[in-house]
């Protein structure tokens, strides 16, 4: 799953530690989410969406779903 967390965090000028504190998780977790090494749970994804005042689908993108969508459009 791809996500825009790093870009959104940079736009707001927040550090990973500050975002981690807001989300009540460790900085390691924020880092893993940003690098795509860990997909957050639904409650945490909602929390991230709330903090950035966006919808979940505006932050997270299902790579498999988007690949299928492109394939369907190409066909």
């Amino acid at each position: 799953m791809k996500n825009r967390v790093r870009a959104l965090r940079a736009e707001h000028g927040w550090s990973q530690a500050a975002l981690a504190k807001e989300l009540d998780v460790s900085r390691q977790t924020v880092n893993a989410i940003e690098n795509g090494r860990y997909d957050p749970s639904l409650p945490l994804a909602f929390k991230i969406a709330r903090i950035f005042a966006l919808k979940i689908e505006e932050i997270f993108e299902d790579e498999a779903g988007s690949a299928n969508g492109e394939g369907a459009r190409d066909a």
């Binding site: 707001h12 000028g13 927040w14 530690a17 500050a18 504190k21 807001e22 950035f52 005042a53």
Partner: peptide, 11 residues
């Protein structure tokens, strides 16, 4: 959280 109110580093 609105965009014009950046998160302060936590005290």
């Amino acid at each position: 959280m609105p965009e014009d109110r950046p998160l302060e580093p936590p005290a």
